[in-house]
Every structure is written in C-alpha cells, then in structure tokens.
C-alpha cells in the first residue's frame, strides 16, 4: 500500500509538468465546460434535466447569498456556483473506480545503471540509501523496481488545486473589499497585525481542509480495499460479497463528503466575503 502525498508526474509538456491530478482537474473542467455549452446552447424556458440541476444549484446559492449579504449577494453567485460545481465534480470523479487504480508501472531507467552495483547487502544499505535519495538517486536500491503511477488522481487530492482555489478566493474577497469600501477603509480592517496572520491562516485552512478531506477519503478507500484483499484472498465471489459490506459504505461516505466539502467551500467563501464586502445597507449607516 503506497499513498503519495504529491501528485505523480505523468510526462513533461515542454517545461510544464503534467501530473495525474491536473489531468483529472482538466477532465472535470472540460466536462463542465461541455455541459455548460450544451445546456446554454439550447436553453429552455421550462427547465428539464441537467438545466434543472444547474438552476437548482444557482438558486440555492442565490438564496443563501441574498440571505447573508442582501441584494448585493446575487453578484457573487456565479463564483460560488462555479466553485461548488468544480469541487463537487472533481470530488465525485475522484471516487469513480479506475481513479487511483488505473495506471502503469514505471521504472527509473536512468537509475538502473549502477543499481546492480550492490545487490548483496540490500537491507544493510537501505537506511543510508534512503537518506541521500534526493542527492544521489542512483544509489537507491528501489530504483530498479517498477513504481506504480496512477493515471488519474482526484483533483482535490492535490494541494496545488486546493491552494489555487483558496488563493483565488482570498484575492477575490480582498479585491471586492477594496472595490466596495475603498483602499483606506479596507486597510482599516488590518490595524491589528493578528488580522493579517488570520488572513493567511484562512488560505491555509481553506486549502488544507479540502485537500485533507479528499485525500483522507482516498486513503480510507485504499485502506478498505487492502483490508478486503487481505480478508478474501483471491476468491472473486467472496470479494464481491464482502466488498459490498466493507467498501460500499465508505464509497457512499465519500460521495457525501465530496458534496459537503464543495458546499462548505462555497459557504465559507460567502461568509468571508460578507466580512469585507460593504453592502448598501452598511454604507447608509456611515
């Protein structure tokens, strides 16, 4: 059982490293774009099917935004809905079978040149070799072994994605705050230096919350699958029967967590936004 905190590199596109998580996030983005264009292309007055779902989500956030921020809240509904849709789509795509299990084995060919130099004392060399693995990968005695590289990885099980979202959201919030209240008024929020720290901790907590939930979910599913394999051995019938009891509840849990995390991300965005965005109501009080 090997779980990597980092996304695995698939190939390099020029200087750009294409990892499995960014591939997944592109797939989710592409899926949403295609859906949006298809639904937007033949938009009907009386909604049905997917259009209904999109409208439901939009209306849900519209209701919450207007509840929190009044009429000005409806301006931010597109951002909230996009966040929600992107996160929930990539979370649910990450739970699908094949994500994390479909892949290929890769051997570090460059390292194999002198890997057979010390084949005898494998255990003795293991600790020192691991220590300077970064400095000299050639001496790593695992380098000859094939390493499994999954083709897909849940897009939010990668800190790059979650931090990108968190930074976008926080930048957006502060830009909106400056736009609505003016720079001097906005900076007045940060007389206390602890406030500045709190802004950075918001980014961290945004990023780590989403990453942690999704990543922990993946770890959980992998652990359950390993337990399943340990219990059933190689009997396929047993695998099917026991798998239904062991893995299915956790799959359901992951679908639920995927929804909740998307919802929470959008809700937190809304509530942080309402801290800094001046509505007409509060302006009239000044």
């Amino acid at each position: 059982m090997h779980i990597s905190l980092k996304p695995e590199l698939l190939f390099n596109l020029g200087p750009f490293p294409v990892t499995n998580s960014i591939l997944s996030s592109w797939i989710a983005t592409l899926l949403l774009i295609v859906l949006a264009i298809v639904v937007g292309g033949n938009f009907k007055r009386i909604p049905s099917g997917i259009q209904h779902i999109f409208e439901m989500i939009y209306e849900m956030f519209e209701g919450m935004a207007t509840e929190v921020m009044g009429k000005a809240g409806s301006k931010f509904v597109p951002l909230l809905a996009t966040l929600f849709l992107f996160i929930i789509t990539s979370n649910w795509l990450g739970v699908l079978p094949g994500v994390g299990s479909l892949g290929f084995y890769e051997t570090h060919v460059a390292a194999s040149s002198d890997s057979h130099a010390a084949p005898a004392a494998k255990d003795a060399h293991a600790t020192p070799a691991a220590k300077d693995a970064h400095a000299a990968p050639a001496k790593d005695d695992h380098s000859g072994e094939p390493v499994f590289v999954p083709l897909f990885r849940g897009a939010n099980a990668d800190l790059n994605t979650t931090f990108a979202l968190a930074i976008i959201v926080m930048v957006f919030i502060h830009v909106m705050g400056i736009k609505s209240a003016g720079l001097s008024h906005h900076l007045a929020h940060f007389k206390n230096p602890l406030e500045i720290v709190s802004e950075f901790s918001k980014v961290l907590s945004f990023g780590f919350r989403l990453f942690g939930n999704v990543f922990a979910g993946e770890v959980l599913l992998t652990a359950m699958a390993s337990i399943l394999v340990i219990i059933t051995g190689k009997s396929l019938l047993l695998y099917g029967v026991i798998g239904g009891f062991i893995v299915t509840p956790f799959l359901m849990l992951e679908f639920f967590v995927g929804f909740i995390q998307a919802f929470v991300f959008a809700m937190l965005t809304l509530s942080f936004l309402s801290l800094f965005y001046k509505t007409e109501n509060s302006e009239s009080h000044h």
């Binding site: 919450m64 990453f211 942690g212 922990a216 909740i260 809700m267 937190l268």
Partner: peptide, 24 residues
C-alpha cells in the same frame, strides 16, 4: 443544519491538520 455543517467543517479542519502532519 447549514450552521451545523459549517461548524463541523471548522472543527473537522483541526483533525485534518493532524492528519496532514501525520502524513508529512
């Protein structure tokens, strides 16, 4: 329910930090 989920998300985040540390 909405408030509860928000509160739970904040609380859960602490456990998630611990998990991240344990993974690091």
């Amino acid at each position: 329910r909405t408030i509860m989920i928000l509160g739970m998300a904040f609380t859960e985040a602490v456990a998630i930090y611990a998990l991240v540390i344990s993974l690091i």
